[in-house]
């Protein structure tokens, strides 16, 4: 429980919305995809040997979570030390396959302040856009992060 008193001003909100992270890139490896599928307990052959329908091996839908450090920096200091993941909204536009290089950029879509059962919270909506080496958007992930 935080006892901070913090006010998110309109100015801070305006400065935050639209802030982007540095791009992060990852080469997609077949062994990594197989280990991820095993870890999530999904034995779908699309992730290990490929299927006629998928035209070869593809990555599981949430595999892109393995790309880390995609965090836009807020342009102000907030006195919160804890972070909760509130959830995600994924949209898929194409497959991710071994051999692809995916580049991700996160953008602050919204930020708001609320007081709830865990005290004062700063709730940020971050949209990550994942592009492949052909500059095609393969997925977007809009997630809610809660600092408190």
């Amino acid at each position: 429980m935080s006892t901070n008193s913090f006010t998110l001003t309109d100015e801070m909100r305006e400065q935050s919305i639209g802030v982007e992270s540095e791009p992060v890139s990852m080469a997609i490896e077949q062994g990594h995809v197989a280990r991820f599928a095993e870890a999530i307990g999904d034995d779908n052959p699309a992730y290990t040997v490929g299927t006629p329908e998928t035209g070869g091996i593809i990555a599981p839908p949430t595999f892109l979570r393995a790309m880390r450090g995609i965090r836009p920096e807020l342009p102000f200091d907030a006195p919160f030390t804890r972070l909760l993941d509130g959830g995600s909204d994924w949209e898929y536009f194409g497959h991710v396959r071994p051999g692809d290089t995916i580049t991700a950029v996160g953008r602050v879509e919204d930020i708001r302040e609320r007081t709830g059962s865990i005290g004062q919270m700063l709730i940020a909506t971050i949209k990550i856009t994942y592009r492949n080496q052909h500059d095609a958007v393969v997925a977007t992930q809009t997630s809610t992060s809660i600092r408190y």
Binding site: I40, G41, D42, A46, D85
Partner: peptide, 18 residues
Amino acid sequence: GALKNAMLGAYVTGWAGP
């Protein structure tokens, strides 16, 4: 949380078939 997200993904894609 992300593993639970993955479990729901596996649940739905398993149902939707190849």
